[in-house]
Design a protein around this nucleic acid. Structure first.
Lengths: 216, 216
DNA sequence: ATGAGAGGAATGTGATCACAAATCCTGCCT
DNA sequence: AGGCAGGATTTGTGATCACATTCCTCTCAT
């Protein structure tokens, strides 16, 4: 909890800086489910008044990244099993579509970068860094999906990731086993082979398998 | 532009009332693409200060219902063709899924209500009421999808509708022909027959055909 | 007639304040 | 020891203000 002065080159508005920082922290699972936040606390943390903090929180609440209680209190969401299943279904719908659109544009340079990111994923798994794993995993997917040239679909997919952030943290810090990113290798293989049905299946499996473990 | 005093039973917060009203107006196509709004104007209109107006606008901007220019000016979005195609693709992905989930729960009472709403659609088509047509059309779809018991997917779908609101207004007020809602009849027939593939296809066609006309 | 420029109006942003509601903590009573 | 009441503190909400920026319009010179 320390002041984080605004860097002089960052010319964005204050609320946008706060929003972006909070959004990244939530998406990467740096906050667990049900953690409480306060407007004054956020303001203090970023060295701004309540106004930008409020706007950031409202924006994140609109995206489902934060929950507002009936009295206006702010916290990260605690998802029910039904909601987790729905969000997994959304990933299963959206991500194969993005992968399929990216496939014809996926050249060697992209595949190389995906393999490099995948090594980063393995490192995070090895050191049991839940947040780092989530960050690398999402970077893998986003790098692929950016090639789809479909910003609206990608934005919607990221909204789903955002809602799942705190829950994924709880999930990945619970399971201690160091599983290798097997599905990522399937994805890369399908990309190399130009195998569209295989790619869709691998992406679908990868994006939903983690959530499947949470139904206990 | 007149004061709209808060009804005493409406116990919600001011910003929520403003948000809901603006959201409905945008989704139903009461505002055309590229229309400008001002915080002070919204505040005057609803009899509140700039603060609730600002929060409503930010929230709607987060959902893609409003566009914020680089200088912070607020307006309804003017969608590019690429973005319209993406949003149509999202409807084509999400809505068949919702319809499929609703199918096993669609009993006679629901089908009756759908047929009644469909008559309302025809009325709006007959009187060339673009906004009324959009409202009735969306009510038809929402009534069906509510049976899917999938609030997260439905919320995401409504976000897509919201983004398309102003564009759909421009579309339906341009084409003067009074087309009957043929695909809605296909949807109802598939529901009665329990024909899941037919239902998916009819929903997919219905949700994308209108947007297809806009690619000129 | 047309384009550039200056001045004024309009607009968004962030800070601060008063207020009400909710929450938390303390201490008392059973 | 446990629960409850009551006050103190925390917290969100909405209004208002000062300020910087943007936008519009009118004017004047070419």
């Amino acid at each position: 909890m320390q002041i984080q002065p605004r860097t002089p080159d960052q010319t964005g508005a204050a609320h946008d800086r706060v929003y972006r920082s909070l959004r990244t922290r939530i998406m990467h699972g740096e906050l667990g489910p049900g953690e409480a936040l306060t407007l004054r606390g956020i303001g203090k943390h970023y060295g701004v008044s309540m106004t930008p903090a409020r706007e950031s929180v409202r924006r994140l609440a609109a995206e489902g990244a934060l929950t507002l209680s009936s009295s206006g209190r702010v916290s990260t969401p605690e998802l029910s099993n039904d909601r987790i299943e729905e969000l997994a279904a959304l990933r299963a719908l959206l991500e194969p579509e993005l992968a399929s659109r990216a496939l014809p544009r996926a050249h060697f340079a992209l595949i190389d970068r995906l393999e490099a990111i995948n090594q980063g994923v393995s490192q995070m798994v090895a050191r049991h860094d839940a947040s780092g794993y989530i960050r690398m995993n999402l970077e893998f997917h986003r790098t692929l999906y950016l090639r789809a040239q479909a910003p609206a679909i990608l934005a919607m997919t990221e909204t789903v990731w955002l809602q799942l952030g705190p829950t994924m943290r709880a999930l990945y810090s619970r399971l201690k086993r160091s599983e290798p990113p097997y599905n990522h290798k399937l994805i890369i293989a399908a990309l190399k082979a130009g195998d569209e049905p295989g790619l869709r299946l691998a992406v679908r499996t990868d994006s939903t398998q983690g959530l499947r473990l949470l139904k206990n």
